[in-house]
């Protein structure tokens, strides 16, 4: 049996989460996409990530009331909640899509958050190739 290494895509807000690779985490995370605000991540980007083979998608945004653009983080969260409802109908476990609103300017927590998600996705197995 080949071991399953989940392919994760992480959209990460540059204001709240580190992105300068100060502690070398970028090497471990192939698909880390720094964005100017978690609210910039469109639902079509997320669906596209799944279509192109992602087993899970995580969005890192600023804590409640601390969005640099006022409500971007709330918008991101509502999008995720809506999309999770849609994913279920597509037979895709909603756990494959997550949002975390928190603060981590050094990026020290990013590998931890990703690691936790990776473990969960390992349990779910690969998202069967859909295209």
């Amino acid at each position: 049996m080949t071991t399953f290494i989940p392919k994760l895509v992480c959209f990460s807000c540059k204001f709240g989460w580190g992105y300068l690779n100060t502690n070398g985490y970028r090497e471990q995370l192939k698909n880390l996409i720094p964005v100017t605000c978690s609210g910039k991540v469109d639902t079509t980007h997320i669906m596209d990530a799944f279509r192109k083979g992602a087993d899970g998608v995580i969005i890192l945004g600023c804590p409640e009331k601390e969005c640099h653009f006022q409500t971007g983080n709330y918008q991101a969260r509502k999008r995720i909640l809506l999309l999770r409802k849609i994913l279920k109908e597509f037979g895709v476990e909603p756990e494959r899509l997550k949002v975390e609103l928190n603060l981590d300017p050094e990026g020290t927590r990013i590998p931890i958050v990703i690691g936790e998600m990776r473990k969960e996705i390992e349990k779910l197995g690969p998202l069967s190739p859909s295209v």
Partner: peptide
């Protein structure tokens, strides 16, 4: 745009009030 459904979700999200997760979840 290829996927109108996914696109609509983005605009729909912005119209949902409720600034805490529980309320948003309830509306959704």
């Amino acid at each position: 745009v290829d996927d109108a459904g996914a696109k609509f979700i983005s605009s729909l999200a912005s119209l949902i009030s409720a600034d805490n997760e529980e309320e948003s979840q309830k509306t959704i």
